[in-house]
Design a protein around this nucleic acid. Structure first.
Lengths: 233, 233
DNA sequence: TCCATGCTCGTACGCCGTACGAGATTATGG
DNA sequence: CCATAATCTCGTACGGCGTACGAGCATGGA
């Protein structure tokens, strides 16, 4: 079979181990030490059980990762468009999703590697769909608007997180990084001047601030485009 | 050190093995059999050399993967905005990138996992920057427009590819898949009706067509938003 | 001829995911 | 209250992984 979500659950009511516990422990390890640190043995140890005991509750490590990813989606709040209007609701949702991904930086690599079909992911999709429907979208455009928005958020957040992870993992000072970057720009064939100025532009800001501005920029462009489409379909 | 791109190259002029060969062979394995099939031993065998010989040319498997990812970016054509205008150039670029990612479906998981700082990635960034500059963007907006566009393409392509990979990997008929999907939608708590109708909508089209329409939709929304921003900055 | 340098590769280490089946625990129903 | 079945745990083992290490080989300059 192909995914946790497309097969019936195991009955499972055990005192010592449960899916929920396993998933929670896995998230803790991931948050604390990242993907490489998560092994079934390690997880077993953390749960105070044998490594292979986990396999009764979960078919494989991949399946566990699907569960764990859906857990991240579970943290995303779903604002009510009836209260704050569709555009603010979409925007708030986007920021919420972005926040959840940042809170669990390992999640972005999972998104590319497996289906996002879990109940929490579906809750989000349904909520977003409802929001866009309220805005006035219908038919194919409705579907497209909501799936595009989701993809935009993950797409733009992914490299931000990758970038940040590299920096914190390398433990280098901003200055050292800048030196390396310059060396690289120089040695790149062609010596693109646009990139240098663009990088310099970037460096004037704190990384977090630059990220946020970037996110806001793309999001509002996209929403503007959507809104225009709403006026003349 | 943190990335292949931030350290000086090894001199390397060998008759029997070279970076280029290694990378090419790796891409072939990946294209033919996917990420899981790529191991250093396997790659060594394919190259007719010892597995560990590779390690003179490449510091680690991660580094190899960085090289391999940049190879994908190398396949993306960079249209000339002076000839076809900025908007068409951006659009053509977006489709080109999308095509390259589809041609190497393993590439999307790499994007989330490592820096994209290679010479080919930089060539693309620089070209895009030049295009947007010609369109009239400047300062921070210039940088934002181009990085957002890049992220949009990867973000929207990633789940499409993931979805497609799952389907082809499972080897199930479309009918079986539909059944599974319905089962899943039913068992999801709440039984979201929006999702069912949205899924039904989707099912009327060929998967490839639906993907393409979706991509075009988001892209043109985004470009509309950009264009509006160009008129009143 | 000898040596420095560039390059290959066999071996080995410590991990990994997980198949398997024997055992422990709990629930059932006679 | 016991027997049997279902549920759940886990030690062992297998094959494969990335790669550290150092001995070996080729080559070209002194």
């Amino acid at each position: 079979m192909t995914s946790v979500w497309t097969r019936e659950r195991r009955t499972a009511k055990s005192p010592t181990l449960s899916r929920a516990q396993i998933v929670r422990a896995a998230v803790e390890i991931l948050d604390a030490e990242g993907m490489d640190a998560l092994s079934m043995r390690r997880l077993g140890t953390k749960l105070g059980s044998g490594a292979t005991s986990i396999y009764w509750h979960v078919a494989s490590k991949d399946e566990l990762l699907e569960l764990v990813l859906d857990e991240v989606f579970g943290e995303v709040p779903l604002p009510d468009p009836d209260v704050i209007g569709w555009r603010d609701a979409v925007s708030a949702f986007a920021y919420g999703l972005r926040g959840a991904l940042f809170a669990h930086p390992w999640s972005t690599v999972l998104i590319g590697a497996m289906p996002t079909l879990g109940p929490n992911a579906m809750r989000l999709s349904a909520g977003l769909l409802k929001t866009f429907k309220l805005a006035g979208f219908q038919g194919r455009a409705l579907d497209q608007a909501s799936s595009t928005l989701m993809s935009y958020v993950t797409g733009v957040t992914t490299p931000e997180i990758a970038w940040q992870s590299i920096i914190t993992a390398s433990g280098m000072s901003p200055q050292e990084i800048a030196t390396d970057m310059m060396r690289m720009l120089q040695q790149a064939a062609g010596d693109y001047p646009e990139l240098v100025t663009s990088y310099a532009e970037h460096e004037k800001l704190d990384d977090g601030v630059a990220s946020a501005l970037n996110f806001e920029f793309g999001l509002s462009c996209f929403l503007d485009g959507l809104e225009a489409r709403l006026r003349q379909p």
